[in-house]
Computed example of a mutant assay.
Amino acid sequence: MLTKEQAHISFAGSVEGIDYKTAGKSEKTFPYNIWQLSSHIQFTQKDILEFCTNNQYKEPKWPDDYWPSNAKPTQQEWQDCLSYFQEDRNSFVNLIKNPSADLLAPIPHGTGQNLLREAILICDHTAYHTGQIVLLRKLLGNW
């Protein structure tokens, strides 16, 4: 679920061929643009990775830290978002593939969460917003 398309398109597939200008386009009936959704997906995935790996984890402020402050990305911000998403995804996959990883052990600084739950959360959250990206692309006539 983290690395391949299954029953629906992947995040990477949903933004394939999108440039930074298109990512910043809005549709009046939709509350977000592709940039905002993509940035939110990337940040949230990074936050979950940090939670799972950093004993000194500090929870970001909701919702301010989880959504980009700018409505339109620069070309560099867009490319960074896509690159960081993939890097963080690879890091999380490596984390759960580690033979010493106990997917069901509670995360020491958490409140009962474990790696399996966090992997499912990443998949679920990304799939939800990826569906919004596909819908938005359709509304923009870009699908």
Rank of each mutant, 00 (worst) to 15 (best):
T22L: 11
P63I: 09
A7G: 14
I9Q: 12
L136H: 00
K72G: 05
A101I: 05
I122R: 10
D124C: 12
L139F: 06
P106V: 15
Y128M: 07
I133P: 01
G17T: 02
L103F: 00
I96W: 07
K61N: 10
L136A: 04
E5W: 05
L136P: 01
Q79L: 15
N90T: 07
F92S: 08
P31K: 09
R137D: 01
T130G: 04
Y32Q: 10
N98T: 04
A23N: 07
P31I: 01
I18R: 04
Y32L: 07
V134P: 10
G17S: 08
T3F: 13
P63K: 00
W67S: 09
N94I: 06
K4M: 13
T44Q: 08
P63V: 02
R137W: 10
L135E: 02
F11P: 05
N94A: 08
I122Q: 05
N70S: 11
Q56M: 07
Q56A: 13
K97C: 08
N54F: 07
Y84E: 14
Y20G: 09
I122M: 00
H129Q: 05
K61A: 08
R117D: 12
L116F: 14
G13Q: 04
K138P: 09
G141I: 01
K72M: 12
A127D: 05
S14M: 00
Y32N: 03
S38G: 00
V93M: 04
W62A: 06
F92P: 00
K58G: 09
F85Q: 06
E87L: 07
H40I: 06
F85R: 02
K28Y: 12
G112S: 04
I9E: 12
Y84T: 14
W78F: 09
P106M: 14
T111L: 07
A23Q: 06
Y32P: 07
G24R: 07
Q86C: 04
I34T: 03
G110R: 09
Q86V: 01
D47A: 14
L121P: 04
A71T: 03
Q75L: 14
K25F: 00
I96H: 07
M1V: 12
N70M: 03
L115A: 05
N98E: 11
E77S: 14
Q86D: 11
K4N: 14
I96K: 03
D65Y: 00
F11W: 00
G17A: 06
N94R: 03
K21N: 05
F51L: 12
K61R: 10
M1W: 11
T44N: 11
S39L: 07
L37E: 04
E77H: 10
I133G: 02
W67K: 09
L49A: 09
G131S: 02
A105G: 10
N70Q: 13
K21H: 11
T3E: 13
D47M: 15
K72D: 06
F92T: 02
W35S: 03
